[in-house]
Design a protein around this nucleic acid. Structure first.
Lengths: 192, 192
DNA sequence: CCCCATTATGTACAGGCGTACGTACTATAT
DNA sequence: ATATAGTACGTACGCCTGTACATAATGGGG
């Protein structure tokens, strides 16, 4: 019989170590996926680790606390949405084009992704209790308003921003969300 | 020496039993207070019991689960806000008065209470994952729209409702919330 | 090529959680 | 006055959590 030297079969096999330089980034994306699916309340170290397929210990190595994970995740989300906002409005060359950009923004970008929609509302709630997240939210809002001010005066930009917020949230929670035509109608009526 | 009959000093004194018929109601209000202060995520049987000053066992006696507590609490919140909505708009006798009612609603009733504000956003998030709470939210929205339709056509009512939502949420999250004059300006501009 | 700082991995621990349940008390109907 | 249903109270159990930490492996700078 062969000797006991033939890999004594450890009761719990240690999984092979992986070379994974972008792991921290992946963890932040995994966190966003978990938040979108289960909410901040259901977001745990273990669940994020499961989704990203890394051991639990990896979470505490890359982040000092769960709060840090949430902050990094929401910062990334806000940045991502704000960038789309900037791009759409930056590409508009006159006021009419800007109005169309806003309609597309609401109908396609914001309402098109349930993922992003849920993340935004989760951020609003979290921001109510975490000063850092509140700052993240405010920076995001300021950036949106600034993008609108490329085409509209300050007062209009602020009010239009609020209207966008309302249209999106309202549609998100409704059984029959507003159609793109209805979105268009509302925005045109306000800007008429 | 006196016999051991002289109340043998139980190591943990049992608190006196109280006659408390309205306890279940109080628990729902306590739940709303906890949700407003700590969020749904921080709402536990024990915390609600602490706030209401009842033992833990009282929670499981009056409610079959924590989810039931949340549903009852949010239902009460929605009902309370909807009632104010109804009353304000019901008292308006013409369209101008209705416009004023909407402005008061946003400036005073909705933005005036941080408590209610937080509860509403918490409900939105919870509704994204709980079908019962989603129904509660939708019934509330339908009722608001119906109240508006006493004075405005259906399309205007829906759009105005969205604008209200946006103005409130936007102000709630901002460092410098909109003043009543700014609220008035936005609503008049949309309805002009 | 080798060293070692960096990264990966598994596990232990203390605390909080929802829920179940046995017991004690009391208001009310009889 | 007594029986009973309803309510109040305390506590135990198993599970999951965030976090700390000991150990192992690797790849890039000298």
């Amino acid at each position: 019989m062969s000797g006991p030297a033939a890999t004594p079969r450890p009761s719990v096999p240690r999984r092979p170590r992986r070379h994974d330089p972008a792991r921290r980034d992946r963890l932040i994306d995994a966190a966003l996926a978990v938040i979108a699916e289960r909410g901040v309340a259901g977001t745990t170290h273990r669940e994020i680790a499961r989704v990203a397929d890394v051991p639990l210990g990896s979470m505490t190595y890359h982040f000092t606390s769960l709060e840090e994970v949430l902050i990094e995740a929401f910062t990334r989300h806000a940045e991502s949405v704000a960038r789309v906002f900037d791009e759409r409005l930056g590409a508009a060359r006159d006021r009419d084009a800007a109005v169309e950009a806003v309609i597309t923004l609401v109908s396609d970008d914001l309402l098109g992704s349930r993922h992003d929609l849920v993340l935004s509302v989760e951020l609003y709630v979290a921001a109510a209790r975490n000063p850092v997240l509140k700052a993240v939210t405010q920076a995001w809002m300021a950036r949106s308003r600034q993008a609108l001010e490329r085409h509209f005066d300050a007062t209009t930009a602020r009010e239009l921003d609020a209207l966008i917020e309302g249209l999106v949230l309202h549609s998100a929670l409704s059984t029959d969300p507003m159609t793109p035509e209805q979105i268009r109608h509302a925005i045109h009526r306000y800007l008429r």
